[in-house]
C-alpha cells in the first residue's frame, strides 16, 4: 500500500484526527491529533489492508519553537509498507496519548521520550524515568536544557 492509499483509508475514517500530511517526502508522514493517537493506532494495527503490526521506533524531538513531537515509525511485516506518524504538543502542555497498549514495543520508547524530553504520554501504564536516575531533574534532550551544576548536592565535575 502506498502512503497515498494509507492516507485515504485513514482520512475516510478519522477525518479530523489527521491534522496534516506530507506524502511526497522520502518518508511520508501523517500528523495526528495527540489526543486521538490510540484509536488511530488501533485501526492502523488491526485493519486488514493496513496491518501495521510493528512499531519500529518512537522518537521524541524538541523543535525549539516551543513545540515537542513524538515520531512513530511503523512498519507492516505482512504488507511490507511503512508509514511515519507524528504528534505534536507544546512544551507548556506536553501531553500525547500513549500507544503502549497498542504496540508493546512503544512502552519503553515512550518512557524514554518522557525521560529525555518530558513528553507526558497519557494512559501510559508505567510512565517512569528509564535511562536517567529516578530523581533526575529536567529533560536533557530539550534544547533549552541547562546542564545542572549539582546532582543530589554533589558537584558535577567537568
Amino acid at each position: 500500500m502506498t502512503a497515498e492509499e494509507i492516507y485515504k483509508s485513514l482520512s475516510a475514517k478519522f477525518g479530523e484526527a489527521l491534522v496534516e500530511s506530507k506524502l511526497d517526502a522520502p518518508q511520508p508522514f501523517l500528523v495526528l491529533d495527540p489526543k486521538r493517537m490510540k484509536e488511530v493506532s488501533l485501526f492502523l494495527r488491526d485493519d486488514e489492508a493496513l496491518q501495521f503490526d510493528f512499531c519500529s521506533c518512537v522518537s521524541g524531538v524538541d523543535y525549539n519553537n516551543g513545540k515537542l513531537g513524538a515520531i512513530y515509525h511503523l512498519a507492516s511485516m505482512v504488507h511490507k509498507h511503512k508509514i511515519v506518524l507524528k504528534a505534536f504538543c507544546t512544551r507548556e502542555n506536553p501531553h500525547i496519548q500513549s500507544v503502549a497498549s497498542v504496540w508493546g514495543g512503544a512502552d519503553w520508547h515512550e518512557r524514554e521520550a518522557y525521560d529525555l524530553l518530558g513528553i507526558i504520554f497519557d494512559e501510559h501504564p508505567d510512565l517512569r524515568r528509564i535511562l536517567l536516575p529516578y530523581d533526575w531533574e529536567g529533560y536533557p534532550l530539550r534544547k533549552d536544557y541547562k546542564v545542572p551544576e549539582f546532582y543530589n548536592g554533589m558537584k558535577v565535575p567537568y
Binding site: S56, S59, G104, H109
Partner: peptide, 18 residues
C-alpha cells in the same frame, strides 16, 4: 539536530518481563 538510535537490545529487553 536530533539523532535517535533505535537500539534492538533496548526493545528486545522490554519483552523480558512478559
Amino acid at each position: 539536530y536530533r539523532l535517535k538510535a533505535r537500539a534492538p537490545a533496548f526493545v528486545n529487553l522490554s519483552v523480558l518481563p512478559e
